[in-house]
Design a binder for these strands. Structure first.
Lengths: 124, 124
DNA sequence: CAGAATCCAAGAGGATACTG
DNA sequence: CAGTATCCTCTTGGATTCTG
């Protein structure tokens, strides 16, 4: 393995870790999933994603837009109208995320059982 | 949709978000991937996962163990020997995570391009 | 060898108030 | 409506020191 390959591998690993942290942040995937159903406006999205603060919705949308996962369309009327939608890449990300979510749903009972057992042992 | 279904749906969504945050934390998936290759001892793992601190390796391993994703086997010799390995559930998680990683590798150029474009626009 | 304990810096994220 | 700005708290994670 040459230096170029090493650099490639390192960059790739960093890229994976980087994107996993986006997938793992508190709101990004919930927003992506909601936009996967249909495009939505800002406050529409805010009501759809339960519990998200306005500040975090703004920040989450900016990050997703920066990564090219969603598009932001401004209609300069009064009051302003802003529509958000998944891009092609955003849609393609939703697929592996759905698989992961599916894994969680299939295994959540076992996970909860493992936690309960661990905490029980810990209590001794 | 009855109350039970609502609670179910809410619990499921919370479980997904919860596990995504584990997948998205800085070290968990790197540790899982290394243990996917072969079981390892503590310091072996520490050398294998580049850049991880001893504190974070300990915490990461505890979390993964608590979730039932890895097993921890202590051999009470002097000095002590502790072996970590993926459980069956740990191995099954590695699969959807690999798919997600694959997606990242396929799309990382486009993501980087989107970021560069976004930052360029932002500079104006 | 495999950690536990402590301290510290940076960032995530919520609440509130204000704006074009 | 769709944000921005500010303040504050809690969590994440690194560095360092100590132990059975």
């Amino acid at each position: 393995m040459g230096d170029t390959d090493l650099i490639e591998a390192f960059g790739a690993c960093a890229a994976v870790t980087d994107m996993l942290s986006r997938v793992g942040d508190k709101w990004s995937m919930q927003v992506v999933m909601k936009l996967g159903e249909q495009p939505r406006r800002f406050n529409e999205l805010r009501r759809a994603v339960d519990g998200i603060s306005q500040r975090m919705l703004t920040r989450t949308l900016r990050n997703l837009e920066r990564d090219g996962l969603i598009s932001r369309t401004v209609t300069p009327t009064v009051p302003p109208r802003v529509d958000y939608a998944l891009t092609g890449m955003g849609h393609s990300l939703a697929e592996p995320v759905r698989r992961l979510s599916h894994w969680v749903l299939e295994n959540r009972m076992e996970i909860e059982a493992a936690r309960a057992e661990y905490d029980r042992q810990d209590a001794d």
